[in-house]
Amino acid sequence: MSDEQELDLTSLDDAELVEQMHNDLYDGLADEVAQGTNILLGRGWGPEKVLAEALVEGMRIVGVDFRDGILFVPEVLLAANAMKRGMAILRPLLAATGAKPIGKVVIGTVKGDIHDIGKNLVGMMLEGAGFEVIDLGINTDADKFLAALEEHQPDILGMSALLTTTMPYMKTVIAALKERGIRDKYIVLVGGAPLNEEFSQAVGADAYCRDAAVASETAKRLVEARRAAA
């Protein structure tokens, strides 16, 4: 497009700007998303409203198109990166207002397993959905999971494994939770290429998540259900 013009985000009204931010997130334009975030804040929007209507909704659209095979991994990583730039602006403001994230998640790849791309994608989609994510990284043993649960008191524990040899470790972690009588304090989500629904039930998880978009949808659904029931 030779007649491409510099778009002045300040010239858009609120609704147009939010829609433009969805598009910019979709295209992974981090500077533009950061600018849009600042403009909305300057117009008196609260940080929670910016987060929910501009960023979270934008990442929801990204997640749907990723799930449907329209967007691909590098594009989702770019979108997540743009989301992070917006979040960096909002995070201190959200903390100051005392607003809570929609939920808190501790995730990690289980002991013996060093694969983390899928787990990282899940983490980013969850952040995009408005969760606070504590990522324990790879090769995470039960003690480390337990310590993180104790420290952060999350709503959700997420475990990932890419190997048939390492996925049984999920059962070890869940057994450790049961032993301490804290299994039911947390929603336990599991995922990874060799897993399936049957395996998830067998190890006593609450749900199996096929991909990052499903993980984010499932996390939201189960947290809401749990709050409604409480």
């Binding site: 048939t164 040899t165 897993l195 049957e198 395996f199 067998a202």
Partner: peptide, 8 residues
């Protein structure tokens, strides 16, 4: 033959 929960 890496099948979950099977006698591999």
């Amino acid at each position: 033959a890496g099948i979950p929960l099977a006698d591999e």
